[in-house]
Deep mutational scan, measured.
Amino acid sequence: QVALSRTQVCGILREELFQGDAFHQSDTHIFIIMGASGDLAKKKIYPTIWWLFRDGLLPENTFIVGYARSRLTVADIRKQSEPFFKATPEEKLKLEDFFARNSYVAGQYDDAASYQRLNSHMNALHLGSQANRLFYLALPPTVYEAVTKNIHESCMSQIGWNRIIVEKPFGRDLQSSDRLSNHISSLFREDQIYRIDHYLGKEMVQNLMVLRFANRIFGPIWNRDNIACVILTFKEPFGTEGRGGYFDEFGIIRDVMQNHLLQMLCLVAMEKPASTNSDDVRDEKVKVLKCISEVQANNVVLGQYVGNPDGEGEATKGYLDDPTVPRGSTTATFAAVVLYVENERWDGVPFILRCGKALNERKAEVRLQFHDVAGDIFHQQCKRNELVIRVQPNEAVYTKMMTKKPGMFFNPEESELDLTYGNRYKNVKLPDAYERLILDVFCGSQMHFVRSDELREAWRIFTPLLHQIELEKPKPIPYIYGSRGPTEADELMKRVGFQYEGTYKWVNPHKL
């Protein structure tokens, strides 16, 4: 086992960053958080920038500027975001240094004079007029057009580079997404736009490419001749908990499936790229999406959770019991969808996408189930092999396979070949997804960000279904809070070829 401390991990990262040409360590950078008073800024962006600063992973002359409508001070920003920093008493001095680099400007999102004030403020910072500028839009999409237009007109660096990070949702359907994309691309070049999907920053999602293309053993079996089906799962054990009003506007397909799960599907299904260059990788992902037809209604199961009468606390409440959810809402909190990649490698292999709230566990994984062994000599005792990439929690890679049961006879039983990170790298604290992705933006690497043509294809696949749901308002199937979801989803999976045995229990190697 390799035991690495946080300091050692960050030392390795620093070495990698400083050796590259793309990370300008000594240049002045300004990180501007648009929507600095909001939840995302408070819980994710400010803490992430602090962790990067604490670990010495930001360029040395980096300033952080918050911008929002609320009249706040840096002290206010500190008060609301610091509880999420997880700072230790030993880091007190470092924390003071961090907040000394912070400033805040209040202004409207659609007022040109406010942006001119913001620009004057940035120019007044040390070497601010020639600094590289990175704008993070932690804002609702309704203000994107006004904000990007004003940034472009008043706040661009004339000497350094300018980059803009856009948070999902990128529209509600193909038409609104196209409108937003066309607007942003009329102001910024594609190499300046970073559409963030934080799932692409997760260690195991990034590991998929290495697993596939750096190991000879997987190449020959990664196709329709050997793989019976692919299941991509995202499960949350909690409901909307008072935030249903926002969720109800989008629903589970827009929230998770059309982005996170579809991105994971691309990494499983794509061909080997010409290189690890950002556009070479994204070219292959677009090719996969172009091979997927629009979702067919007979390959869809929609569910909505109801309270568990035997549960406790939140578990007793259904989705419609959330006071922020519109009365009688038919918005799905669970969806199972089957897609097919219609190309030579994957023809006929079902890709089953499942996601839901208020389920029995927290889990995100990719599961490849292989065909049955031909010419069975073990009297149907063999179960199908599976390769599982567990994204969260407890990152893991393992192969479910058959071995001989101890004893006199040739009785096979299920076991696993474990390729888990935790076994080799004991207690290594890896940077989280937002840390990686923000560092990628500083480096100018777009590999783990969504390109406009990729986004367009993703919406093309799901828009007809979303429009049909909005028009017909089908009643989702009720499922109990804390269950596996509607049984109809299991029946759909069985119908397209997935075999669920229920006889195997994964042993978490992190707890051995």
Rank of each mutant, 00 (worst) to 15 (best):
L417T: 08
T420L: 02
E294M: 10
C355I: 04
V281K: 04
L439A: 12
T316N: 11
L262R: 02
T316C: 14
C355Y: 01
P323Y: 12
R327T: 12
E472W: 11
S329K: 04
K426N: 14
P474S: 14
A335V: 09
R354H: 06
D432T: 09
Q258S: 07
T331D: 00
V496K: 12
K357W: 04
M270I: 07
T276A: 15
Q304K: 04
D321F: 06
L471W: 12
V301Y: 02
N299A: 11
I292H: 05
T316P: 11
V428C: 14
G356R: 02
F449C: 01
L353W: 00
L261H: 05
L359I: 06
N259S: 05
T487M: 10
A336I: 07
R451W: 07
V306T: 15
R451Q: 03
N385C: 05
C382M: 14
F351S: 02
G356A: 03
E312W: 12
D279K: 14
N427E: 14
Y500K: 06
C291M: 13
S483H: 07
N343I: 03
L419I: 07
L359G: 05
E314L: 09
V288G: 05
A458G: 12
A489T: 09
A364G: 13
A315L: 13
V325P: 00
M402C: 11
K290C: 07
N360H: 06
P486T: 00
K383F: 10
G482M: 05
A336K: 06
A335K: 05
L419N: 07
F378G: 04
R436C: 05
N385M: 01
T403S: 15
V295P: 15
A274P: 12
Q392A: 09
G356F: 02
E361K: 05
P476G: 05
C291R: 14
K317Q: 14
S445H: 12
I480D: 14
V281A: 09
M257D: 04
E284W: 04
M493F: 12
G313N: 13
T276E: 08
A274K: 13
P474V: 14
C355K: 03
W346C: 04
G407C: 09
K426C: 11
S293P: 12
L289H: 06
G497R: 09
V281D: 05
D322T: 05
G485P: 00
V295C: 14
V268S: 07
I438D: 01
E361R: 05
N385K: 03
P431W: 05
N343E: 05
R384F: 01
V286H: 08
N299Q: 14
A269R: 05
N308E: 11
M447H: 02
G307D: 10
A364P: 05
E365V: 04
V286K: 12
E395D: 15
K429C: 14
G318Y: 03
M408T: 05
P476V: 10
T276G: 13
V288C: 11
E416M: 02
R460W: 04
K429T: 15
D418C: 06
N427F: 10
K285V: 03
P476Q: 03
V300H: 09
K505I: 12
K429V: 10
L359Y: 01
